[in-house]
């Protein structure tokens, strides 16, 4: 049977030519564009994409920024516009310190510079960090705490140095830094801090764990929260540490509240195994029936760990076994007392 000849009309021919033209144009576009490939641009693409995502809670636009809503204290004026940084851009502001915040539950940062009306060249910069929760904020506050700082009554916890003020309130951590050391700037930092805190009426309760440490010999200013990888053990997170001085000897106690007693017990066992892995030598501890306290000597230092209800606790890197065990006993008794009340 002879093959029937296929015919097409003018419309089909024109349509086909148009489609072929489109395909050829796309092909030519790809051909020429490939010579313009720029890897640095590709590297920057994720950031640009990220910038288009939903604005962080703190700000978003300049008008919505905390600092723009702030009724400026008398005598203080804005020196610069607000800047906002999210997790992908935080290092653009604080470089290598970004990991400290990111590891602790960073949400976003807003910064702005201020100066005194009619003042000299001196200025102030406020860094307002929004963290995941009050514990995260406390972690970054406590880990950077300056020694010899003077506590103040601002926020839930705060301290000042000769040119700066550091405040934690709810999930917020704030640093107010002056470019010079003088009383006028110090006063302005305090006023600014007060005004900012007033802008956050609902903050929730401050972190309660610092109250888990027995007061005898405790340095209240030394309490810190290690958000992750505490003592080099990756499973150990949310660990509060506190400095003690007993008979003139410095000691470090720690407490971590877990979700339930089972988790606390399992973590104590895991930490024990972790220490043994590094050739820690087990020490004998006299305990009451039902008690389980693990003590070790490792590279000349004493480590003690135990679990009690939902708490994992102990003493870290003590140089004296007797004082370490005395502190552990105090800590244990105190936790029992707190649990009862």
């Amino acid at each position: 049977m002879p093959e029937a000849k296929q015919t097409s009309g003018l419309k089909e021919t024109l349509l086909s030519l148009f489609l072929l033209g489109v395909i050829v144009s796309i092909g030519m576009g790809i051909y020429f564009e490939q010579y313009r490939f720029y890897s640095a641009l590709i590297e920057q693409m994720p950031r640009k994409i990220h910038e288009k995502q939903a604005a962080p809670k703190l700000t978003g636009t300049k008008d919505e920024s905390i600092f723009s809503r702030l009724p400026l204290p008398e005598g203080v004026v804005f020196l610069s516009a607000s800047e906002v940084f999210d997790a992908s851009t935080l290092s653009d502001k604080i470089n290598g310190k970004a990991e400290l915040y990111l590891g602790a539950g960073f949400v976003c940062l807003e910064t702005r510079r201020f100066c005194l009306k009619g003042g000299s060249d001196a200025w102030m910069e406020v860094f307002l960090y929004e963290m995941k929760d009050a514990q995260s904020a406390f972690a970054v506050y406590s880990l950077q705490k300056r020694s010899g700082a003077i506590p103040t009554d601002l926020g839930q916890r705060s301290y000042q140095t000769t040119n700066a003020l550091f405040i934690v309130f709810g999930p917020y951590y704030m640093e107010l830094v002056a470019s010079a050391e003088n009383t006028a700037l110090q006063a302005a930092l305090r006023t600014l801090g007060q005004a900012l805190i007033a802008g956050f009426p609902v903050l929730g309760k401050p972190v309660a764990e610092p109250k888990l440490f027995p007061p005898e010999g405790l340095d209240p200013q030394s309490i810190m929260l290690i958000a992750s990888d505490a003592f080099g053990f990756e499973k150990l997170n949310k660990v509060f540490t506190a400095g003690y001085r007993i008979d003139g000897m410095p000691l470090t106690a720690f407490v971590s509240r877990r979700s339930d007693p089972g988790e606390a017990h399992a973590l104590a066992e895991a930490y024990r195994a972790f220490l043994l892995q590094f050739d820690a030598e087990s020490l004998t501890v006299n305990v009451q029936p039902g008690e389980e306290i693990f003590a070790f000597s490792m590279m000349g230092q004493i480590e003690v760990v135990f679990s009690l209800g939902p708490y994992l606790a102990g003493v870290h890197q003590a140089s004296d076994a007797k004082r370490a065990l005395d502190l552990v006993k105090n800590l244990r008794d105190y936790l029992i007392k707190i649990n009862e009340t």
Binding site: I94, R146, T161, T162
Partner: peptide, 12 residues
């Protein structure tokens, strides 16, 4: 000596 690379306080 502490809180680098940004510091912020003269006590650093």
């Amino acid at each position: 000596v502490t809180n680098g690379p940004t510091g912020g306080s003269l006590s650093d």
